[in-house]
Write a protein that binds this DNA or RNA. Structure first.
Lengths: 338, 338
DNA sequence: TTGTAAGCGTTATCAG
DNA sequence: CTGATAACGCTTACAA
């Protein structure tokens, strides 16, 4: 047990162990060129003294901080927070810490801001959430600054080393299959904002599956949203005012799906008896709205952990998978067509 | 415009400006003992070179990092995220960064974990969210470690310097006043978990106002929850099965209030016609549930900003307020008793 | 008011 | 394999 007072430094360890501080440094950094006996001796002293290397000093010497940055511009709090938890899972009991950096993707200064941030903080690496993860200029900036990075995304945005991805397209195809199997033929889509890769992938999955089933998708079955609640409300109103009315709606995220619930309720359309609704994300709203919503859940926390490990322990086996399967979470917003 | 390549250091500035690096250091640190002319000259060179002090080096020399820690045990995703935004508002364009540290308040090792964290990272200071902000041992630990701290809370937990507080009790009194004015007499309370100061304050506000209005609070009008959705559902079921039935329910947070919505719906009790419901937090669920929920919103982002400023700029006027007023957000979950 | 010298705790270089 | 010695970029004495 180390007694308190000034924390022991590498010099203390070196002195007590009777070696040079460089040798201690080698032990800390797991240098292979060390006699086993020396290593053991030093490690014993380290344990005795309760020594921990000072990250600030290491940061200065290595010109690199032991900080993982999280860059996001996210509309969904739960996603960001789950992601943070996942990153923590990966760096728990390491010297790394997680620094968060919300940014504004609509600001023309975004890239400059991030450049300053990276320049100042000299991060070990950054994790980038959608939608800004889709920005190739940002990835290029990270490369240029010599800052590690991993992008989260719903498509193959980058090399495996820099990417953790979900299979949105495939999942949405599964949603359509599920609805069709129940008997639905007129299915509407509330799209996410153009420019978002996830929105694109989800739309493509929808269209592909409809086509595969030989089902038509008239323009009136397609409505544009922007991933926000209000846009889902508006889009659902469009969808529900066309005749013959759709019997099911897939919304590209839960928030818009919740908006669709409200539109249906205002029109006296009962969910799921007269209208089935499926969302995407499995955010808390899905479980808390009435009736509880069927949606697609993706393992954000595990993905976050994998992403962080790619940065801090690229060789660990857990860092390997780049693609994570989502799953359909069936609740009570889907029924056979009325 | 600085050209790229190795970033300029204090030595470059000193050389170009023809002064010693200590003088540059004085300029950076706004030392008062500097001739104005010298300062101007150095500042000019700093601007020309695009020099930024290296935080790692400063951290080493000062034995203190320019990092603000956020300690929380996820009270609610949106709250945490809004808080993060508020902190960023405060430290934007400074050398500070925000590091997040979710902890588990049920873990017996929590304090030790935090101690290690503080020891390792040598944070400039930490911001502590409820409910762990109520833990006095944690505050003592910060003091002991020489780490600045500010606690968020719903009561006077600490000195103004270390506290940013909301007026939960008063707000809940206001909620009851509002319901009583509409004609409600039998009002139920869904409490938060015992041991949470916020739950206590909200309960006390409720009881005080009921008493002030000369209204009874029979045991059947009090139900215990734990701030989670399911507990709200369960508690509302208890409340709604007692006769005469309550005509209004105040839930200590929105998540439990959403659970109460579900319980009402399952029993065929219509909100707000047969039952008024009021929540607390103004979280996204409140706006997205049907009918949109009347709730109490508190200015979390501004509070976060003030808290962060107390840490990084204790003298700024914005850091001054320690108490922030919440407000009633009226939507459609309240009506006159049926 | 300014400069000099000596750290802060680590890693890199290069010689043994 | 190991150890002096010099960085890393800044701050804090202490002088001048």
């Amino acid at each position: 047990m180390a007694k308190s007072g000034p924390a022991p430094t590498i010099n203390d360890v070196a002195r007590v162990a009777g070696v040079s501080k460089k040798t201690v440094s080698r032990v800390i950094n797991r240098s292979p060129l060390l006699r086993e006996a020396t290593r053991a001796k030093v490690e014993k002293v380290i344990a005795e003294l309760g020594y921990t290397p000072n990250p600030q000093a290491r940061a200065l010497a290595l010109r690199r901080n032991f900080l993982i940055g999280l860059l996001h511009d996210n509309p969904n709090a739960q996603t960001v927070l789950n992601f943070q938890e996942g990153v923590l899972d990966a760096i728990r009991d390491t010297e790394f810490a997680l620094v968060v950096r919300p940014v504004d993707r609509h600001s023309p200064a975004m890239l400059d801001d991030i450049r300053n941030f990276l320049e100042q903080q000299r991060l070990y690496g950054v994790l980038i959430l959608p939608p800004i993860s889709e920005n190739d200029d940002l990835a290029a900036l990270c490369r240029e600054m010599g800052c590690g990075y991993v992008r989260m995304g719903s498509a193959a945005l980058d090399e495996a080393e820099h990417l953790v991805q979900s299979n949105d397209r495939e999942m949405v195809e599964g949603v359509v299959d599920y609805l069709v199997k129940l008997g639905h033929r007129r299915i509407g889509l509330i799209e996410g904002p153009s420019g978002f890769r996830s929105a694109f992938e989800r739309r493509e999955g929808f269209l592909a599956a409809m086509h595969r089933h030989g089902l038509e998708v008239p323009p009136a079955a397609l409505a544009q949203g922007n991933y926000r609640f209000d846009s889902g409300h508006r889009a659902a109103n469009e969808l529900l005012s066309a005749e013959p009315r759709v019997t099911a709606i897939f919304a590209s995220n839960d928030e818009m799906a919740a908006g669709a619930y409200h539109a249906a309720r205002e029109r006296g359309v009962e969910v799921p008896r007269q209208l089935s609704i499926v969302g995407f994300d499995d955010s808390p709203i899905a479980a808390h709205i009435w009736p509880p919503m069927t949606t697609v859940g993706w393992p954000i926390r595990e993905m976050a952990k994998a992403a962080a490990l790619k940065l801090v322990a690229p060789d660990s086996s857990e860092a390997l998978p780049s693609s994570f399967p989502a799953r359909l979470v069936t609740r009570n917003s889907v029924a056979e067509p009325g």
